[in-house]
Each structure stands twice: as C-alpha cells, then as structure tokens.
C-alpha cells in the first residue's frame, strides 16, 4: 500500500471508471427494477407517470408465451451447462492424450467459431437448416427444421454449442496442461488402462475446470439473444422465444406490443435468476472453503 489511509488523489484514478460504471451499468440496472412497476411505451418522455404496481408481472404471469420463454431459457442453459461442457470434456481429453500430429491446428479449427459474431453463425446455419437447405439434400428429406415446435429449441442449442465448444475446449486444455501428472504416472505403473485413467483420474482431477466451464456457460446461456434473433426471431409462433428475445419483442420489436414496462418486468425476472445463481455460488464456495 502506498497510502495507509484514504487519500484524495485516489479519486483521480478511480472516478472516471466508477462514474461510467455507475451511470451506464448500476443506475440503469436499478432503474430497470423500478420501471417494471410502471406502464410506458417507447414514445413517452416521463416514464414514471403511470404507476401500475405488479400489473406487469401479472401480465407476464398470465401470458403463456412468457412461460415458454422461461422454459426455453432454462433448456438453453441446461444445454450449455451440461451437453456443451460434457462434449468439450471428452474432446479435450481425446485431443490431449490422442497424440495428434497437428493438435494445435485441431484446437484452432474447433476454436475458430468463438471469434465469429453470433449473428454470422446464426445466418450460416439458417441456410443449412431451411427447407431447401443442404441438410435436407444430404439426408434426402424434405423437412422444415426451424418451424418444428419440438425441434427448434434443440437446434438453437446445437448451433450455440457448435459456436462455443472450442471455448470450453481450450479452457479444459489449459486445465489438462497444468494437471498434476504424478497420479497418472503411478497408475501407469499399476497397469491401469486408458478408460480407467480417464474415469478415475483425469475427470476427477479436472473437476475445478469443469465447474469453471459450467459457470461460464451458465452466464453465457442467459445472454443468448443474437442467435435466436437471426435463426427464428422467436418463432414459430413464439415457441423458440427465450427471456431476452421475449423482452425485445415486448419492448422494441417493430410489430410487437411496444409495452416497455412489461419488458422491464422480464428484465426483473432475468435479474432475479442471475442473482439467485450468484448468491448460491457464493454460499457454495464459502461452504467448500470452510470444509477444507
């Protein structure tokens, strides 16, 4: 520490960043919670004129599409947290221990979609999945995948997995590179085969990395909007809506209801979900620390 106590010069370092952070992050975040109790549309100047209590929440509670959006969001998060992390785990172990000649190239290829805009990725897949797309030519089918109510959400999850699997992969790879190798050497002497090594040693040792990947995917899962927007715009008939796109539809969409108070209520729900998870995470990590 340079100063033992607070010094006025500290503000010079701190204020620009904190000012921007408060004005464009904390204040809008809190305002959003307040706005969910007001009724306003995109054309008003005084947003706080019409207080409606919990009407906005009743409105979304009674809207069947809100529940679809909520269910889809959880499904999406589930896919990102378990399916995507699981595939990345297997893939990273295979690439790391598979003695590939071009393992750097393999990783770069699988990682590459991560640097693309989700909008570009969505549009690439949209043409593949459309009725006259190449998937139907390959499979010899004539099916409109993106208009299938039961399939559409899984396809969105698949496209998202396609884009982000490389991200989890390189994080796992970093975990594998820093793994304690003594146990593996010992198991070699004991004559363990490859599947025993993977299930009894490598996967348990990678557990902290798995938790990290799951948390990253959980946070990313609630953010998903771009990919839904370009692939389906929430369709068919709102069946692939997630909370973020539902918020957009209610508040900003050109053909939508233009009810921003309802949008703010949806933001409140997203906020509550993330907050619950964040608090749970802090409690769990404190518990683990106490046990150790």
């Amino acid at each position: 520490m340079i100063y033992k106590t607070f010094h006025i010069k500290t503000l010079f370092y701190l204020l620009p960043a904190v000012f921007i952070f408060l004005t464009f992050n904390v204040i809008p975040g809190l305002t959003s919670l307040v706005l969910s109790f007001f009724d306003f549309s995109g054309f008003e100047t005084n947003l706080f004129r019409k207080f409606v209590g919990i009407d906005n929440f009743i409105k979304i509670y009674e809207d069947k599409y809100f529940w679809i959006a909520l269910k889809n969001t959880f499904l999406f998060v589930f896919g990102a947290v378990f399916i995507q992390t699981g595939i990345a785990l297997v893939l990273s172990i295979f690439i790391f221990f598979g003695n590939f000649k071009f393992s750097v190239l393999v990783r770069s290829i699988i990682f590459f979609p991560c640097v693309l805009a989700p909008v570009s990725v969505g549009l690439v897949w949209k043409k593949i999945l459309e009725q006259d797309g190449v998937l139907n030519s390959i499979l010899g089918l004539d099916y409109s995948y993106l208009s299938s109510v039961s399939l559409v959400m899984w396809l969105i999850i698949m496209v998202n997995t396609w884009q982000w699997i490389g991200y989890n992969l390189v994080i796992y790879y970093a975990g594998l590179q820093s793994m304690n190798i003594e146990l593996l050497e010992a198991s070699d002497i004991d004559g363990a085969n490859w599947s025993q090594k993977i299930f009894s040693i490598i996967i348990p040792l990678l557990w902290p990395t798995t938790i990290l990947n799951m948390i990253l995917n959980l946070i990313g899962g609630f953010r998903a909007f771009d990919i839904v927007y370009v692939l389906t715009r929430g369709g068919p008939a709102h069946y692939s809506e997630v909370l973020a796109s539902y918020l957009y539809y209610y508040s900003f969409s050109a053909g939508g209801p233009n009810k921003m108070g309802v949008g703010a209520a949806v933001a409140f729900v997203i906020f509550a979900c993330i907050l619950t998870i964040a608090v749970a995470r802090i409690i769990i990590s404190k518990k683990i620390r106490r046990e150790n």
């Binding site: 959003s32 953010r223 909007f225 508040s251 997203i270 993330i274």
Partner: peptide
C-alpha cells in the same frame, strides 16, 4: 463485489433504461 456481480448480468437487463438515458 458489485463489479464482479455485474459481469454475470446479461446486457438485456440494462436495455430499456439505457435506451432512455
């Protein structure tokens, strides 16, 4: 801690108030 928590927050939560600000 507020900053750490805000990293987990989706951008869409801020959308409507930011628009008006």
């Amino acid at each position: 801690n507020v900053m750490i928590a805000s990293v987990a927050m989706p951008a869409q939560v801020l959308l409507i108030p930011l628009f008006y600000i």
